[in-house]
């Protein structure tokens, strides 16, 4: 697996584990993207979702399965995943832009409306992103969630932003 050699998941791997969201579902609005393809004993995402859109079941090493129709893209699961492996993508944000929400546990946090470097799974800068939201309520237990608006063509690639070094 590429993940084990390189440390990041490829689209082919996600496809082989059935973790690609249909374009049809993307047309309906925001949806959770779960990039979790190794059987590790972990299940907080399952109970994080009040709509029961994420299922792990028994044994606890089973991979999470997302029910696209039940998921509303609310994003509560993002901060609950200890592996920081859940994202929310909204490809209906505007004609040319999508949003990507991801966990970001570094300081300094970006500010709303700022422009930042959006990076892919390998840390490569792929485009600029505008910060739409930075959520950090107590219930997220110190895992802030940043939402970036980016050109729609990069929505399947962007998974974080370049870490700031200004301090």
């Amino acid at each position: 697996m590429a993940l084990e050699q390189n440390g990041y998941i490829t689209r082919e791997e996600l496809a082989s584990f059935n973790q690609i969201i249909s374009e049809e579902r993307f047309k309906k609005g925001p949806v959770a993207i779960i990039e979790c393809i190794q059987q590790i004993p972990c299940n907080p995402c399952e109970s994080a979702c009040v709509r029961k859109a994420i299922r792990i079941g028994e044994p606890i090493t089973s991979l999470p399965v997302l029910n696209e129709d039940r998921c509303t893209g609310c994003g509560v699961c993002i901060a609950r995943c200890p592996g920081l492996a859940i994202f929310v993508i909204d490809k209906t944000f505007s004609d040319a832009e999508a949003t990507v929400a991801f966990p970001y546990e570094y300081t300094p946090l970006p500010q709303k409306d700022e422009t930042v470097d959006a990076v892919d799974r390998t840390g490569r800068v792929v485009c600029k992103g505008k910060v739409m939201k930075v959520l950090n309520p107590e219930s997220f237990d110190r895992t802030p969630v940043v939402t970036l608006a980016i050109p729609t063509e990069y929505a399947d690639e962007v998974r974080s932003m370049k870490r700031r070094r200004d301090r």
Binding site: Q5, G7, I40, T122, G123
Partner: peptide, 17 residues
């Protein structure tokens, strides 16, 4: 030849470059 720990942990540091 392979990363020993969990892929999700590796992915976090890869995203950070």
């Amino acid at each position: 030849p392979n990363i020993g720990g969990y892929g999700v942990h590796a992915s976090k540091i890869r995203r950070a470059g």
